[in-house]
Write a protein that binds this DNA or RNA. Structure first.
Lengths: 189, 189
DNA sequence: ATGTGCATGTAACTGGTTACATGATTCG
DNA sequence: CGAATCATGTAACCAGTTACATGCACAT
């Protein structure tokens, strides 16, 4: 497996693990989320698909388009699933950026329930730490001077607040589901 | 002015326009915000500073550290200010990503009041559009299936909500300040 | 004496962008 | 008839990362 294209490789593999798609489909799917994870260009996307194909992680079916150009539908292989699973379950080193976490979320389907919860909790811890940092930075700032810095810090804080609230909500939902599925957990801890 | 290093170049120039700093200072300053804009590595930072120096946008003063290693304090020049201002005032083509907007915020001090307000309003429009897209995408999604996609979309929506709320608050504050400073605006429009 | 923090730097690499090329179809 | 949408692809380029190198001071 030759190196390179690590970040998007797994994202694409994860999308293909949910359903077979063409390069164009993937682009459009990710466009909705470009706000969080940035735009993906065809120039980056197609080469990754070719590389995945070379490595046996996906297969292609050429579907002649009715009128439209024919599409290349990529389907994940068992090898691909194995690699994805291995990647998903390995612990992530302090995964600070929002973009990286959003990518992680998209791949939620590739995680075990416990793995997903663990990752969300890890994220919550990080966000809380980050909030503390921002608050401290804001306190050490004379109000009024350095508009940009204070705006950026407040912006970051607003977003961090929203994120931790969201994480709490989702983790709450997930734990309820766990109790329903596995009531023994109630007593264990 | 040779090309390259466009993105961080202006961010760094903007920081230096507020106060002279060393490369190390800049790194530490940006570390608080790495959550939004990603980590900056020394390997990227120092070359940019050297390039800015070559282009006459900054000057250096070597300050011998008392015990500590000596530091190189970079100060923006008039040329640098000119370039920064020109860059700041030119309209931004649909500046979708969160990271790019956060960078913009850090540079708020380089904008005119009207320019800043315009940019925040532009951003608000974009965020609202984005929210609509996300809501539509969520509606067209069978609940339960495709956990990753729905999590990512909900996450995006939570953050977008927080951002539009924040923008509203800040724009409100800025408009009050404008009225106080320039009451004529009350009647004009 | 070994490690951690401060401080600056370079070279190689790579992940992703930009620009370009192709071609069919549908819409105004 | 031109413009836009669907759909795939390549090559050149650049921005930023990683890994490495250096050196002093202070703490354990």
């Amino acid at each position: 497996m030759r190196p390179g294209k690590i970040r998007f490789r797994f994202l694409i593999l994860g999308l293909l693990s949910q359903q077979p798609m063409s390069g164009y489909d993937i682009k459009r799917f990710l466009e909705d989320l470009s706000w969080l994870i940035g735009n993906v260009s065809f120039g980056g996307l197609y080469p990754v698909l070719h590389a995945l194909l070379d490595d046996g992680m996906v297969t292609v079916d050429v579907v002649p388009g009715d009128g439209k150009p024919s599409r290349k539908i990529y389907t994940i292989t068992e090898i691909g699933r194995g690699v994805l699973k291995e990647w998903a379950e390995r612990p992530v080193a302090s995964d600070v950026s929002l973009k990286a976490f959003a990518m992680c979320l998209i791949l939620a389907g590739s995680f075990s329930h416990a793995g997903l919860v663990a990752r969300l909790e890890q994220r919550r811890t990080q966000v809380l730490e980050h909030e503390a940092t921002l608050v401290k930075a804001l306190e050490g700032l004379d109000q009024g001077e350095d508009l940009g810095q204070s705006l950026a810090l407040e912006y970051g804080l607003a977003i961090a607040d929203a994120e931790s609230a969201w994480l709490n909500r989702i983790l709450g939902q997930l734990s309820i589901e766990t109790e329903v599925l596995d009531p023994l957990d109630d007593q264990g801890v």
